[in-house]
Design a protein around this nucleic acid. Structure first.
Lengths: 220, 220
DNA sequence: CCGAATGATCACCATTTGGTCAGTTTCCTG
DNA sequence: CAGGAAACTGACCAAATGGTGATCATTCGG
């Protein structure tokens, strides 16, 4: 998870950086709106409203103009008008200073989960509880422990995780992961399911639905 | 826009109703968690945490278990832990009492906009009173108790539930569920009807129509 | 009120399915 | 090219599932 932090207050910025990095995120920090707009696209933008050059709303609007990246606004002002404005403008959420680090992290997770579980567009990170899958960099981790997955295992996991909770039929899985809809008497799929189950530490992550296929879901 | 408002405080509920309705929304109000869970699916759920029966978090979890409907939590408590918990649990947002009506409306708009622009999943859930059937995830529940159905039982239930109240002829059922319109002297269909009846807890859910077929309907 | 027809239930058995494993082939890397 | 990891395959087993007919209960028409 790569975060773009847009914040002019050096003290706040460095404490946020420390906190987020300790949660396994990579933090890119810029302190002006101009830099923010010029930055490449990351997984999420944390955007302070009180910036020296142009204000956070303007930055938000401009980022929105070119990308669908999730945006969380950070604001010191507490007036309701700000909140409405921020949300109407296209931000995904906001937090009011002073805010707790844990709260912020939860919001980041919530926003990115909303993005990744609902859409199939280029969103790069799928988060399902402790399971997180970075599709672009082909890395997955469980409770911040990296998972060592083979190619097929990863593809299989992604296919299942793109729609957690729904049953994927064997044929669909074969087509998506193996590029063939032929499912003969072989146990190829089953073998890989077994391997995945083992690496996920808890076999309940993948449930077999007899006669149909498999379903991935966070165990209760 | 149809809103399900879950709130036990009558004063708050009626003032919210008035405000939301004046914004063109249709408000359905229930005052207990049990009613909330049993309600059909609306466009968004506003969920008070302090409910008389079981608490808002539990309600949130149960609604999430069967539907992807956007949920906004209403809370009087202000502790950070509550917020995190609410978000991790699957709520889309929360507002802390006292909140302004304009803020709430802005949040509703923001959350539903996120949903509608992002997802393409025709999450089709059939709800008939306490019976709810998620076709995609192949899960059914009765009064929030998950039903453990076999493949045939599930297919049969879906076929009947797609048109509750209408009589399905034996031939039609055989064709849809068994891929054959041959109905010989066997008791296959009857046996599965019996199994379903037992698992639905109340045999009146499925009524036999002599000489024709079966009808599924919520018992009086 | 009786008998035929229809539906309900139950126990039993054959089949299908998923899980596991060991052996073999293929692919990749050094 | 050699070695090892990954992928595939088929056999085997246990368990879930589905089909069947005998038997009992209910309904309906005469």
């Amino acid at each position: 998870m790569e975060v773009l932090l847009v914040e002019d207050d050096a003290a706040i910025a460095s404490s946020l950086r420390a906190g987020l990095e300790s949660s396994g995120m990579v933090v890119h920090h810029v302190s002006t709106g101009a830099d923010a707009v010029a930055s490449p696209i990351y997984d999420i933008v944390l955007l302070d409203i009180g910036l020296p050059d142009f204000d956070g709303f303007e930055v938000c609007r401009r980022i929105r103009a070119k990308s669908d990246v999730p945006i969380i606004m950070l604001t010191a002002r507490n007036e309701e008008i700000d909140r409405i404005f921020g949300l109407e403008i296209g931000a995904d959420d906001y937090v009011t200073k002073p805010f707790g680090l844990r709260e912020l992290i939860a919001r980041i997770r919530a926003v990115t989960r909303r993005r990744t579980t609902n859409n199939n567009s280029g969103a790069s990170v799928i988060v399902i509880g402790p399971l997180s899958i970075d599709v672009a960099s082909r890395r997955a981790s469980m409770a911040d422990e990296p998972l060592d997955l083979t190619t097929k295992e990863f593809d299989l996991l992604v296919h299942l995780a793109e729609h957690p909770g729904v049953v994927h039929r064997r044929n669909d899985i074969m087509e998506s992961v193996w590029d063939t809809n032929w499912y003969g008497p072989t146990k190829t799929l089953d073998a890989h399911i077994a391997a995945l189950r083992k690496k996920l530490n808890d076999p309940r992550w993948i449930e077999a639905v007899r006669g149909v296929g498999f379903r991935l879901e966070q165990p209760a």
